[in-house]
């Protein structure tokens, strides 16, 4: 059992990070913290990809003419793209948080929710049966 755990330790880390990230998104009310949680969650995927490309005993895939074992470079390349996407998402998310703070004067989920309930009450004023 322990061996299984140790042999696949990279996956356990991935799962741990993934669940931590999701948990932060679910449980934290602060919008910035949610974005950070999202980042942690995405990081788990980066590690998943990177670790899967590793070939035991392999080196960096640089052609030197000698007969060597290389790690698979494709997942690494792929994850570069994913990292860029992650950065863009984080930037956009934080930009939204800034705008939300300007509009609502808060970045706390529950306070914003209350403000929106008031918005809706205004919408519906005297208009519901």
């Amino acid at each position: 059992m322990l061996e299984l755990f140790l042999a696949k330790y990279n996956y356990w880390i991935v799962i741990l990070l993934m669940m931590t990230g999701l948990y932060i998104v679910v449980a934290r009310g602060n919008l910035v913290k949610k974005i950070i949680g999202l980042n942690v969650f995405q990081t788990s995927v980066f590690i998943l990809y990177i670790s899967m490309g590793k070939v035991a005993g392999g080196t960096a895939p640089i052609l030197t003419g000698r007969d060597e074992i290389f790690s698979n470079p494709i997942p690494h390349v792929l994850i570069l793209t994913a990292i860029v996407v992650g950065i863009a998402t984080t930037a956009l998310g934080l930009a939204f948080v800034v705008r939300i703070r300007e509009a609502y004067d808060s970045i706390e989920d529950d306070e914003i929710d209350d403000a929106e309930k008031q918005d809706m009450a205004r919408d519906l004023e005297g208009r519901l049966p």
């Binding site: 919008l31 899967m52 998402t89 956009l92 998310g93």
Partner: peptide
């Protein structure tokens, strides 16, 4: 102003969705 929170929610959930997808592909 609710457009902002709507976009934010969409961003968080959309990212989770896309990431799930990329996990599956991986």
């Amino acid at each position: 102003r609710r457009a902002l929170t709507a976009a934010y929610n969409y961003l968080v959930l959309g990212t989770v969705g896309a990431t799930f997808f990329v996990i599956g592909v991986g």
